[in-house]
Computed example of a mutant assay.
Amino acid sequence: MTLPMNERVRHIQLSGIRQFFNLVANEKDMISLTIGQPDFPTPDHIKEATKRALDEHFTSYTHNAGYLPLREAACRFVETKYGLRYTTDEVIVTVGASQALDIAFRTILTEGAEVILPAPVYPGYEPIIRLCGATPVHVDTRKTGFKLLAEHIEPLITERTRCIVLPYPSNPTGMTLTSDELKQIAALVKGKPIWVISDEIYSELVFTGKHESIATWLPDQTIVINGVSKSHAMTGFRIGFLFARQWIVEHMLKVHQYNVSCATSIAQKAALEALTVGINDANDMKKQYAERMTYVYDRLRAMDFDVQKPNGAFYIFPSIAQFHQSSFDFALQLAKEAKVAVVPGSAFSTYGEGYVRISYACSMEELEKGLDRMESYIKKGAR
């Protein structure tokens, strides 16, 4: 007997990132340059704050929107860092940035709506969009340095367009948008019945200049997503933040409330420590990521890879067109013969085909070893 299920779920694929990671995870002596997991430990003062929360019995439900001191700290953080102004009624503490995206999409999307997003792109957006009965409209950004520009967006806007996703700094490319590029998108969208979801989870990891948010120029139509996973090496704590105008936050809070009630109380205390005492914790990590990025970029260029130099996050996205293989076949062969795991570009939409993603969120020693193996493999004649 086959019992009924949601057909939209049936047609969703597991993340290509995880599929490939799982495929090679048990291989001996594998250098994995796959997952976006910071190799830095969570700072000690944050771990101590977590222990104190337990000792102080801070183990009950918090307000649905989150522990008030944490919401206050989150508002101060984005104002201090990026000049964004929100009140405590304009922020929700979520179970990671992923849950923030989920409640945002489920609040603003209706059946038949369209969502414009750049490609190649992180694979976590499309499944949620489709579960909402909406349609993702991918924009090929390969000819503009992996940047989604106003000139791309304008011809794609229809009466069904409800949202544009700006995921910068980008996973998988590490690219960012300039203030001028953001201003042009804001000018295009302003006054239209279109939301912008600005996924800024890597905002603290920008190597040149400072991170800028489109919410600076389009505050009433922007939903900002952020969190402490990448900035403070707190992926397992699962704390994200959603910022938007109060009237729409009130509706998103209803979805959040029936989805998870509230984020974990202990993790919220840890995040409070991160955003206050640890407000600049990301600086040392960012410095090391920048050094790793330069090293990986230079090594890839020396191997004759065609590759854009990233300006943020901890990913780089070289072309493998020269090898005349699909990205999956190239990555699989590299894993089997050189014991180096990278993510096939096809995991990031069809526009990622012909590329691979390398994560440098691992030690310099691992990067050196992995790139040495890759170079030896290529010199032998990758096939």
Rank of each mutant, 00 (worst) to 15 (best):
S261D: 12
G83W: 02
V189F: 12
H324S: 14
F241L: 05
I153Q: 04
R52E: 14
G66K: 06
R299G: 08
D372V: 01
V296A: 06
P344H: 13
T176G: 09
Y258T: 13
D304A: 13
I358R: 07
M252L: 05
Q288P: 00
Y122L: 11
T94K: 02
E181G: 12
L218Y: 02
G36Q: 10
L148G: 05
E200C: 09
N26Q: 07
G209F: 10
T62C: 12
A215K: 01
A361D: 13
G96C: 05
G66D: 02
T178L: 10
P219V: 07
F314N: 08
I153D: 04
A382I: 06
T173A: 02
S265H: 15
T34H: 12
S327P: 11
E56V: 08
C75D: 04
F77C: 09
L84G: 01
E212G: 14
Q37D: 15
I225Q: 00
G209M: 13
S359L: 11
A150W: 02
R162V: 04
E353G: 06
V95S: 10
L218V: 08
V137E: 09
T176M: 09
I214N: 03
P120A: 11
D199L: 05
P169K: 05
L131A: 04
H152W: 08
Q257P: 03
V165E: 03
I164L: 07
L131G: 00
N283M: 14
I201G: 09
I214P: 03
M1H: 15
T208R: 14
N259E: 11
L177R: 04
Y295Q: 07
G227F: 04
G236T: 11
R292L: 07
V91E: 00
N283T: 13
W195Q: 06
A150C: 07
E72C: 12
K269C: 13
A335K: 12
G133Y: 00
A134T: 01
C163D: 00
E72L: 12
D329Q: 15
F20P: 14
T135F: 06
S198Q: 13
K230N: 15
L156E: 06
G36V: 09
F314E: 02
K254A: 10
Y315G: 15
Q322L: 01
H232C: 10
T135S: 08
G345W: 08
A331C: 13
L149H: 09
T235F: 07
G236Q: 11
V165M: 04
I31D: 10
S15C: 14
P123R: 02
A274M: 14
T88Y: 05
D298H: 07
I239N: 07
G354R: 07
L371G: 00
R142C: 10
M293I: 04
E27Q: 12
I116K: 01
R52W: 14
I92R: 00
D281W: 06
G352M: 06
V296M: 06
T34L: 12
I108P: 03
F328C: 11
P136A: 00
Q37N: 15
F348P: 10
I214K: 03
K379V: 12
R76A: 06
H324T: 03
L218H: 05
L253R: 10
D298T: 10
A270R: 09
V255C: 01
A100P: 04
I266E: 15
Y355F: 15
T235R: 15
E151M: 07
G36M: 09
D281R: 04
L218G: 07
S213R: 01
D199E: 09
F328M: 14
I153R: 04
